[in-house]
Computed example of a mutant assay.
Amino acid sequence: MKPVAPPRLCACGKIVASGERCQCQIINDRARKARHDRRRPSARQRGYNHEWRKARQEFLKHNPRCAMCGQLANTVDHIIPHKGEDRLFWDKANWQALCAHHHNSAKQREEHRPVQS
């Protein structure tokens, strides 16, 4: 049987069970993400328009499986983040099909990892 870590004390002073997050942390994360989203351009402003939706649908028709796990894909991911650069945005060699799980977790962690020199 795997040992269970003891509860911990949150910065707010509440005791939190092992492996769980304090309600104050959840609220703070939501507020931080909302601030970020208010400053972020809309999906349309970032290039995800009708033309992209058509190209995405066509790409997924020919690449229906997640590049990471082989499950059905529902997202076209830019391997190298385009950061608004049209050449990278539309370069199909820079696209990969991903399932929602891998796009929203593994890929995001990878992109936010500090660059090592």
Rank of each mutant, 00 (worst) to 15 (best):
A97T: 00
L60T: 01
H102C: 15
W90F: 06
Q108K: 09
I26L: 11
R35D: 15
I26Q: 09
E51S: 07
I27K: 10
N28I: 06
K107G: 08
P64S: 06
N94A: 05
P7W: 02
R30E: 12
G13D: 02
P64I: 09
R109V: 08
R53K: 10
G13N: 03
R40M: 11
R56D: 00
V115S: 08
H103Q: 12
R56Y: 04
P81R: 04
K14V: 08
S42Q: 08
C69Q: 12
C69Y: 11
R46P: 03
H50D: 13
E85A: 09
L9V: 09
L60S: 03
K107I: 10
A34P: 08
S117L: 13
N94C: 04
C66V: 02
Y48F: 12
G70M: 13
A73V: 06
E58D: 08
G13L: 01
Q116A: 13
S105Q: 13
R53N: 09
Q96R: 15
W90T: 05
C99A: 06
G47F: 04
L88S: 09
P7R: 03
G47T: 04
V76R: 02
H82C: 05
M68L: 14
L88Y: 13
P41D: 07
G70A: 12
Q57G: 03
C22A: 10
R53E: 10
D86C: 02
M1Q: 05
R65F: 10
A106S: 14
R44H: 08
S105I: 14
A100F: 10
H36R: 15
S18H: 04
G19C: 04
M68H: 13
D86N: 06
A11C: 05
E111L: 10
N104Q: 11
L60N: 01
G84E: 00
R32E: 12
R56A: 00
